[in-house]
Amino acid sequence: MELVALAVLVWVGGWLINRRLANGTQAETRAVQLAVPAIFGLTLLLVWELLVRGLEVPLVILPAPSLIAARFAASLPLLWQDFSQTILKGALGGYVIGCAAAFVVAILVDRSDFLRRGLLPVGNFVAALPIVGTAPILVMWFGFDWQSKAAVVVVMVFFPMLVNTVAGLRETDQMQRDLMHTYAASYWQSLLKLRLPAALPFVFNGLKISTTLALIGAIVAEFFGSPTVGMGFRISTSVGQLALDMVWAEIVVAALAGSLFYGLVALLEKSLTFWHPSQRS
């Protein structure tokens, strides 16, 4: 009971600290802006830990964060294997193939006004569909190993990437294109020097949407059949064995991988589109 009371106390304490910080004079500094969400996250973890211990929640319902951390530290080699199978091979492989293919198709499509008019609505439509459902079909075609997961990822990222790139290639206005024309620029010159750079913010938007989709595709496809390694496999079998600490450890890996992947793409965007208004602050 004391632990539950302590949990309430921690919650109130964390909130009070954050209130002081957020309404204080330093609220706009970078340190405070990082500290407040960090304190909130820590408070949440502490409350979770104390509540699970205080109320004696069984492991099969919700393991305490300390248990998850212990499990995480103890099974690092296993987690690394799953990570390299699912993320490095399945998700990343599919991501590179899918985004590259969509990029090339977008440049080809852009040459024909007719094709663009036809493909954009279709692409927008397909991008909203539950594409993960193709996983059982692709597992049947490409086998249980990572190739089938990469194939699911290719299908998932292709259309969001295509739609964004095609939209980006339309970004230049008549004036700019006329200027290139007066320079007697060839198609390739105006593509490389004007239209591709102008399309970059859109391209990166597509790339950023695709990072999450790639992870979702690779993990969910493993629910439909996989070798005995991989994050989706580990999650579904550990759930079956009620080893929830392992499931949570995998989710931590997925969360870290997801934010890292997104962060890397965002960093690349920052360095390549430094000129765009959205990057200037």
């Binding site: 099969v60 319902i61 979702i216 969910v220 629910f223 997925a254 997801g258 962060g263």
Partner: peptide, 15 residues
């Protein structure tokens, strides 16, 4: 938004 939170799904069902 950057995390595949759908990975939680099997656990929620079973728990």
């Amino acid at each position: 938004q950057t995390i595949p939170i759908i990975a939680l799904a099997p656990m929620i069902i079973v728990v």
